[in-house]
């Protein structure tokens, strides 16, 4: 027996499926097609089956089903929580890029009003540099306030990202911190994708330039990518940093699988994983 979108066909006997587009789609989703045995459709069979009288009508009908399925799939994709998180992370990175550029330009502009202005020996973080710009004409003040406003939004968004990450990828977030975990997720495009990656891919994710230069030209391989942003990696002594990154990323690979398949925090796993990462610093 062959199953097609409109019904089952066995030899010369046809069993058209009677139902609305929704019911047809439900049926198609549940079809288990054995591709080795499958015989593709000749549309004339559909005509003999009474599905459609003409080819135009046949195509219109099959198209209605396909469009309905595609819309359904797209809708369920955008309802996924990891997808929302990914876009929040992208926005966060976009804001960072924008504020950095705008701040740089603002500093140059400010120099034309206060030529003695310098960043040296100032004890404030670089991102608060706009606080020091006290003079300036109206348009400059407007720009400055806008930069500060965007910086505030960034702070709010960052908390939101970390909170959401803790919620939907609790184990990965417990190992890496919400923000870095969310960045990893955003880079590979989804929780399913992250959970199917080996630890070694996670270790070098975000270091693609170095990785491809290593593969092509034999330069030294990268030790860490996004994972470097975790304090366990960047605070580790230089000699063991690669090792810490390797062990951490293999634990992250397990954590991502726990997040995908169980979807809740496993405190015991997290404790043991953190212990073994801490041990990596001291073992020689």
């Amino acid at each position: 027996m062959q199953s097609y979108w409109f019904g089952d066909v066995e030899g010369t006997s046809y069993q058209p499926f009677d139902g609305s587009v929704e019911e047809l789609v439900e049926r198609i989703k549940n079809l288990r097609v054995d591709i080795e045995e499958f015989v593709p459709l000749e549309w004339e069979i559909a005509r003999q089956c009474g599905v459609a009288a003409t080819r135009e009508e046949y195509l219109d009908k099959v198209k209605a089903v396909c469009v309905f399925m595609a819309r359904q799939n797209v809708a369920s994709y955008y309802q996924r929580r990891d997808v929302k998180l990914i876009h929040m992370v992208r926005m966060l990175d976009g804001i960072d890029e924008a504020t950095n550029r705008l701040t740089e330009d603002a500093i140059e502009w400010y120099r034309t009003q206060d030529p003695s202005f310098s960043m040296k020996y100032r004890k404030i973080p670089h991102r608060q540099v706009t606080d020091m710009m006290t003079s300036g004409d109206e348009s400059f003040r407007e720009v400055k306030e806008e930069i500060e406003r965007i910086a505030n939004i960034r702070a709010i968004l960052m908390k939101e990202v970390a909170r959401t990450a803790n919620e939907i990828i609790p184990n990965t977030s417990a190992l890496l911190g919400g923000l870095v975990a969310a960045r990893l997720l955003a880079r590979c495009g989804g929780l399913r994708e992250l959970s199917s990656l080996p630890g070694s891919s996670i270790q070098v994710m975000g270091a693609s330039t170095a990785l491809f230069s290593h593969l092509k030209n034999g330069t030294p391989s990268p030790k860490h990518g996004i994972i470097f942003q975790n304090y366990r990696v960047h605070n580790a002594p230089r000699q063991v940093r690669g090792k810490v990154a390797r062990i951490l990323s293999s634990k992250v690979a397990i954590a991502a699988r726990l997040d995908y398949y169980r979807g809740k925090q496993c405190p015991e796993f997290v404790r043991e994983a953190i212990e073994s990462v801490s041990r990596a610093r001291y073992r020689t």
Partner: peptide, 23 residues
């Protein structure tokens, strides 16, 4: 375009869209 039939599926898994298409 009447004659474009969109199928949202993974091309490496033809079993998911085989019933929808023809020779």
């Amino acid at each position: 375009r009447r004659n474009v039939i969109p199928i949202m599926a993974d091309a490496s898994r033809p079993q998911t869209y085989a019933p929808l298409i023809e020779y």
